[in-house]
Amino acid sequence: MATANTHRHALALSLFLIVGVHILGNHKVSAKCKEIIPSLVSNCSRFVRVPGPKVPPSAACCQVVQAVTVADVPCFCNLITPAVEKAISMEKVVYVARTCGLPVPPGTVCGSYTVPPKFV
């Protein structure tokens, strides 16, 4: 029997996928950006959801993130809309990216979020 929490997570993931499809249908993005989004959603979405604490990403999530280059970051950042920001935490996105070795440059703007400096 599924719990209410499970239903909420499924709904959040469904909304994220719907938003992703909408974004891809309405924006011209690089082919690589389009190709990686489904893998990012399936492997990393649980680590970037708005509710909950920061959790180190899985090896599978990092494998997908490592396929992204610094040059690809603007493509992904252009896809961040207010609707996407309601579903995912940009702070967690940067945490996951940096934890997986993707150096997201400070000052990068993703939606309404500006990436802060990396604190050591």
Rank of each mutant, 00 (worst) to 15 (best):
H27E: 07
A12S: 15
L13H: 05
M1V: 10
H7E: 12
L13N: 08
H7P: 00
S58I: 03
G52D: 06
N26C: 07
F76I: 14
V109I: 15
I23H: 07
K92N: 04
S39Y: 13
A97C: 11
A10P: 01
F16W: 01
P103C: 01
G20I: 02
C61G: 06
L24V: 12
V65M: 03
P105V: 04
C75N: 15
G25C: 01
C75E: 15
G111W: 01
V93F: 01
L11T: 12
P74G: 08
A12E: 09
G25M: 13
V48M: 06
T3A: 03
P116Y: 10
N43H: 15
P51F: 13
F119Y: 04
A10V: 05
T69P: 04
F76G: 05
V109W: 00
A10L: 15
V120P: 15
V109G: 01
K118S: 07
C62V: 00
V64N: 07
V50L: 10
H7W: 11
Y95G: 00
V120H: 11
T108D: 00
V21S: 05
M1I: 09
C33G: 06
L24D: 10
P82S: 11
T6H: 05
P105W: 06
A12D: 14
H7L: 14
V94R: 05
K92S: 03
P82D: 01
L15H: 00
N78L: 07
P38K: 11
G20Y: 02
A87C: 02
A4H: 08
M1F: 12
V48G: 02
V109H: 11
C62Q: 01
S89T: 03
Y113D: 05
P57L: 02
L11R: 04
L40M: 11
V104K: 00
V96C: 04
G107T: 05
I18D: 11
K34C: 12
A10G: 14
L102W: 10
V29A: 13
C75G: 15
F119K: 12
A60Y: 01
A2Q: 05
R8Q: 06
T81M: 01
G25S: 09
N43W: 00
I37T: 11
S30R: 12
I23D: 09
A4D: 10
R49F: 09
V96P: 01
L13S: 08
T3P: 00
A2E: 15
T114M: 09
L102C: 06
P38G: 06
A31I: 13
V65G: 03
A31Q: 12
L102A: 06
V120M: 07
V64E: 13
A67S: 15
G20S: 15
V55L: 09
S14R: 06
T69H: 07
K92R: 13
A60T: 06
H7Q: 12
A71P: 03
Q63T: 09
K54Q: 13
S42M: 07
L40F: 09
V94L: 10
V68Q: 00
P56I: 07
L40N: 03
A71T: 15
T3L: 07
A10M: 13
A12C: 04
P51N: 08
S30T: 13
P103D: 13
I88D: 01
V70E: 07
V29P: 03
H7C: 11
A59S: 11
Q66C: 01
K32S: 08
K28Q: 10
P117D: 10
L102R: 07
A31L: 14
A4S: 11
R8W: 00
Q63S: 15
G25N: 14
V115F: 03
A4L: 14
